[in-house]
Design a protein around this nucleic acid. Structure first.
Lengths: 199, 199
DNA sequence: GTCTATACGGAGATAGAC
DNA sequence: GTCTATCTCCGTATAGAC
């Protein structure tokens, strides 16, 4: 990486490339997205990308690690709630919401999941985020059970895994629907989660 | 395609290549599986594959359309059941079961789903199977509602779509878990479906 | 029908002028 | 820092001997 005279400009340009690449990865998948396409979409010459990223894969990693921190903040806040069941529902909502926000998001996420079990580096990136989410959910489940707001026979870890899977289902749905009425799924998810935790 | 002297042998060999390819597609994905790998796995020389399939993509299509008919048979049978809710549960079970049968199955299915919205030919193949499943489920939901075994406020089509998504969740889970305790998910799915339909 | 050898194109990454 | 040009490898598919 060459010395950069204006770090802010460098970062902005890097971010611009990253965003351009994200859309392409979502649309065509990682393997079928070429560096030439990324450069064209970002409005730079082919090859210039390598002044900002060491490889095509690093571009993908940058896209995936984009918003890791904010979920942790919310979780920390919700763990202090005195209404654990509601907090859990809100957390699930928060995790599922991006799937409905933009059609490209669920496609990108699924693409990442599939790449993960072929590429260890990507697997590590995703597992870190996933482990944090599941641990947080398990803690929220435990609190809900202890407060008598959820079934007593729920195993926190198993339940967290299942809730995580249900959230994944919404992403899956979003990736498959060409039109974008995925917001319906959010309501169904909420109802499903409530019913499973209490029925 | 050259004339074949022994059609039965030809079909068997074609099937052998198809099975070898399925395992590779599941493990490495479609794009990263090379025709050379398929030939090596099938024990034939590179290039000989093209005596059995017109292209790499046709191999993939053959893998995906492998077991289309049997689900239709079961569905037809279940639509005549006089216990609609149980029939619906059994159909969902049937759809989800393969995900737990072998670790490669869910990976292969997800791979297909992602390829589908990049390749129209694959999209058509999957949509045909999917439409049949959803229509069947919607009919089963309607019968369950009419029989008073399920909530009256359920919209058959929306509910079928959601159940289909929940089944997808099990595949998603199976594709992500490296170890194979996916059978737990089948029980959770059953409980989830019951609770959603009746609670 | 099956093999070996290879044509052909495309993709990631680099070289070096400006 | 950005460009153009290109190197190099690899994958699909084909040609043609046996």
């Amino acid at each position: 990486m060459a010395r950069t005279l204006d770090p802010a400009r460098h970062a902005a340009r890097r971010r611009h490339i990253q965003d351009s690449a994200a859309a392409l990865f979502a649309e065509h998948g990682y393997d079928r997205t070429t560096t030439a396409q990324i450069c064209r979409a970002a409005g730079i010459s082919p090859g210039n990308l390598y002044h900002y990223f060491a490889s095509k894969k690093q571009v993908f990693v940058a896209v995936l690690t984009d918003d890791d921190a904010e979920t942790a903040d919310l979780l920390e806040h919700l763990l202090r709630s005195d209404r654990p069941l509601e907090a859990l529902t809100e957390f699930v909502d928060h995790l599922a919401a991006p799937a409905a926000a933009h059609p490209a998001v669920p496609k990108l996420v699924l693409e990442a999941l599939l790449q993960a079990h072929r590429d260890p580096e990507i697997a590590v990136v995703l597992e870190e985020a996933d482990a944090a989410e599941r641990d947080g959910m398990a803690a929220l489940v435990r609190r809900a059970v202890d407060a008598g707001e959820a079934r007593a026979d729920l195993d926190p870890a198993d339940t967290a895994a299942w809730l995580s899977t249900l959230v994944g289902a919404v992403y899956l749905d979003g990736a498959l629907q060409e039109d974008g009425d995925t917001s319906v799924r959010l309501g169904q998810l909420r109802h499903t989660v409530r019913a499973y935790l209490t029925a």
